[in-house]
Design a protein around this nucleic acid. Structure first.
Length: 420
RNA sequence: GUGGCCAUAGCUCAGCUGGUUAGAGUGCCAGGUUGUGGCCCUGGAGGUCGCGGGUUCGAAUCCCGCUGGCCACCCCA
């Protein structure tokens, strides 16, 4: 029989890695909640239309990276490739912004993109992020960047680079797109194949090209196309970031792939990550998104960060915590005959809150104690023939290498003394 | 989606230009201890050599296809 493996582009998070995962997720939850963000969960699949309208029908993500399927009624559904669209649908759909504005939510969960997997890029990956919905203010853009930055600071990640830019509103971007097309069209024949394609599909992406760097150098800047109010808004964001002492660098050529972005965008990347997978995350403002979804116009801003990539960097820097011991106490019998007595002792100890493993093997006692070491247990409780007869147990301190025989009634106390 | 490299025990890997029953380290199990651990000694189990086809007297080794991983593009987390 052929062995069934995990699907291409997916990874299991095995117990040995769960400590590091919990560290990242818990740290983010703590930081986000310190800014007053509350947890939210939305479905991992949504109607395909949601992403087509929010992310953009002619973006790579929607065109070729979504896992799309039909339900039994023939409706087209897609595994979520990102979560801002779903969270906006949920928050504005429930009219939460009519109660407390802005609505601050944080989340963590799986996202899906059908791109060719490689290190730091999977079909199923995990993002954590926050969204702040219902108010348009440069101070809120500063807030989300500050939250992301504090999160990385709590993890003690170094070697990070933070870049910000403004894309203006939809009109500004339209003008800018036209300006770019006008600038590039005369050079059409000398453009690389990718850029020829970009010129048609997504002119903003022309700025990402490394081959035609000389053209990018002289290309018009988005700043020149920004309206007065967008310029002012971005100035305020920059001033706020400076006041918060966040080392953000303005990159006039930073663009983000999703259609819903407007005004502020930012990206965090790491110098240690290989080539194209160096982005740890990013975000920005999406004031037009709710309207695209047919909902009341509602401004919003937020970010998403890639957990797997954060862990790659954290491991490289030696920051990821080692797996922690899974138990405090190992309880075993000397011989199989005393297993019931050992089980009773374990039951009592668990009731008092300790993490207790019952060794049910028929191995020799020395192997059982060896197992206790491997589990990281600090105490062992041993029940043999004599102990059963005397209604007692041997309580051994595995660190101090000392032990005593105690009556069953005092077992909990004796173990607690060792664990304390 | 395009191109390149790779795939041998649970893990890390060796196996030269095709040639007897495919190895090491580590991990696992057992013995060394008639009821006491992290070290040590001895032994054992464990491999459809990723899968399928082909060439050959003979394939882990050469060829083709598939699957998966990694890397570079594309793009992004």
């Amino acid at each position: 029989m052929a062995e069934i493996a995990a699907p291409r582009g997916t990874k299991d998070i095995l117990p040995a890695e769960s400590t590091a995962w919990r560290w990242v997720l818990e740290t983010h939850r703590r930081v986000a909640e310190s800014f007053g963000y509350r947890p939210i969960e939305t479905p991992i699949f949504e109607s395909t239309e949601l992403f087509a309208r929010a992310v953009g029908a002619d973006t790579d993500i929607v065109e070729k990276q979504m896992f799309t399927f039909e339900d039994r009624g023939g409706r087209s559904l897609s595994m979520r490739p990102e979560s801002t669209a779903g969270v906006t649908r949920a928050v504005v759909g429930a009219r939460l912004d009519q109660e407390i504005r802005p609505v601050r939510v944080h989340y963590a969960g799986p996202m899906f993109r059908a791109e060719r997997p490689q290190a730091g890029r999977q079909h199923q990956f995990t993002q954590l992020g926050i969204e702040c919905i219902g108010e348009r203010s440069p101070a809120l853009d500063v807030e989300i960047v500050e939250c992301a930055w504090r999160f990385f600071g709590e993890l003690r990640l170094t070697g990070l680079h933070l870049q910000v830019n403004s894309l203006g509103d939809a009109d500004d971007r339209g003008h800018y797109r036209a300006a770019l097309v006008a600038y590039y069209t005369p050079f059409r024949s000398r453009l690389c194949d990718d850029c020829k394609r970009r010129l048609e599909s997504n002119p903003l992406r022309l700025l990402d090209c490394k081959k035609d760097a000389d053209l990018v150098e002289a290309a018009p800047m988005i700043q020149e196309s920004l309206s007065a109010h967008s310029t002012r808004f971005f100035d305020d964001v920059q001033a706020g970031l400076t006041a918060a002492r966040i080392p953000a660098e303005v990159n006039p050529r930073l663009v983000r792939g999703l259609d819903y972005y407007a005004d502020t965008v930012f990206e965090v990347w790491h110098e240690h990550l290989q080539g194209a997978q160096n982005a740890l995350g990013g975000g920005g403002r999406y004031d037009g998104l709710a309207e695209l979804l047919g909902l009341p116009a509602t401004p919003g801003t937020g970010y998403a960060l890639g957990v797997e990539r954060i862990l790659i960097v954290a491991r490289q820097l030696g920051l990821a915590p080692a797996p922690e011991a899974s138990s405090d106490v190992l309880v075993c019998s000397v011989e199989p005959a005393q297993i019931d007595g050992a089980a009773a002792a374990a039951r009592g100890l668990r009731a008092s809150g300790a993490r207790v493993v019952l060794d049910v093997s028929d191995r020799r006692l020395d192997r059982k104690l060896r197992a206790a070491d491997r589990l990281g247990a600090r105490a062992a409780v041993i029940v043999g023939e004599q102990e059963v007869a005397a209604e007692s147990a041997v309580v051994r301190d595995l660190v101090a290498r000392s032990q005593q025989t105690v009556p069953n009634a005092e077992l909990g106390e004796a173990v607690e003394r060792i664990l304390r």
